[in-house]
């Protein structure tokens, strides 16, 4: 690229007849407004809703969505929205996981994940991450695990507290940040495994895995792809099921050959070290560009 073309964008004098371009200030003000509206409309993690509420959204739109959601309703009764801020995969993933620990009273899994997260301290340091950049975020995640694993008289207050924490700017975002650093470190540790995927993802891929991670994994708000999911589920050994919902009209699932009804595509991310047949701990619903949380019946 030409060096002269980099730099702060200048505003060209509007040509006769051409619409005037908005100024930086106007664009940023608009972006901030959209963000503020988005924040007001949706929490980082929303409330549980029946899946029928999702179907409502498409009732007058693409009928493939409606059909696929109708079929999904046999397996999933409810869902929970996450804010579409580019962190929705990580946030949905960690919230659903922690909530699962809480509601399942799964103390064995709490101990396992605590040990795994603590084990990442060494790996991150070995991977070149300074302890000071992740220690607080790691503690915030461990705090959440500890608080959901505490015996409690009823699940009410604890559940509510988890929701409050995961809606908190600092707590929620620092935990997302920690997961991003772990993901980055995992991708770089297994460079040979991940490099071909990175090459396949972009027309002009970043030249190194390290640069890819600095640019597309570590920054907040960078959207997650298949690769991020593989890396973080492997790193923490947490199996995840993603249900892909799009407008495509191909009969899927293999069972409805010739049938008119459509199925959402299901993809399980099962870490290699998990025994075959391990059930997913987290279920996410993917619509192009966004992840929400699904609740199996």
């Amino acid at each position: 690229m030409d060096a002269a073309s980099s730099g702060a964008q200048t505003e060209p004098a509007p040509a006769a007849g051409a619409p005037e371009r908005p100024s930086d200030e106007e664009i940023l003000a608009q972006q901030n407004l959209i963000r503020a509206e988005q924040a007001q409309r949706s929490e980082y993690v929303g409330n549980e809703e029946p899946l029928s509420a999702l179907k409502e959204e498409y009732i007058n739109g693409n009928q493939n969505f409606v059909q696929k959601i109708s079929k999904l309703e046999s397996a999933y009764g409810r869902f929970r929205r996450t804010r579409g801020d580019g962190n929705c995969f990580f946030r949905g993933f960690v919230y659903a996981y922690l909530e699962g620990l809480l509601l399942g009273r799964d103390t064995a899994e709490c101990s396992r994940i605590t040990a795994v997260v603590q084990g990442w301290k060494m790996r991150l340091v070995e991977g070149g991450f300074q302890e000071l950049v992740f220690e607080d975020a790691m503690d915030l995640l461990l705090d959440q695990v500890a608080s959901v694993s505490k015996p409690d008289s009823g699940s009410g207050p604890q559940h509510e507290q988890l929701l409050i924490n995961m809606r908190d700017d600092t707590v929620s975002n620092m935990i997302v940040m920690f997961l991003r650093l772990v993901t980055s470190c995992e991708v770089q540790r297994r460079e040979d495994h991940f490099f071909p995927f990175i090459m396949g993802m972009y027309d002009e891929p970043p030249p190194t895995v390290e640069l890819f991670c600095q640019r597309f994994v570590e920054p907040m708000g960078e959207e997650s792809d298949h690769l991020h999911i593989v890396a973080v589920t492997d790193a923490l050994q947490i199996p995840v099921r993603v249900v892909y919902l799009d407008s495509s009209g191909h009969p899927g699932g293999g069972s409805g050959a010739g049938g008119a009804d459509l199925d959402a595509t299901v993809h399980d991310f099962v870490p290699d070290a998990c025994p075959p047949g391990t059930q997913p701990r987290v279920h996410l619903l993917y619509r192009p560009g966004h992840y929400d949380i699904l609740y199996p019946r």
Binding site: D2, S6, G7, A8, E25
Partner: peptide, 28 residues
Amino acid sequence: PPGDAEYCARVGNRSPKLSRWQFEDDKV
């Protein structure tokens, strides 16, 4: 940088985060 005087006159001393940046050449 190209357009330096124009840019500085326009943005003054406000935060650089309020500018839209294009990074096409990070090696100078």
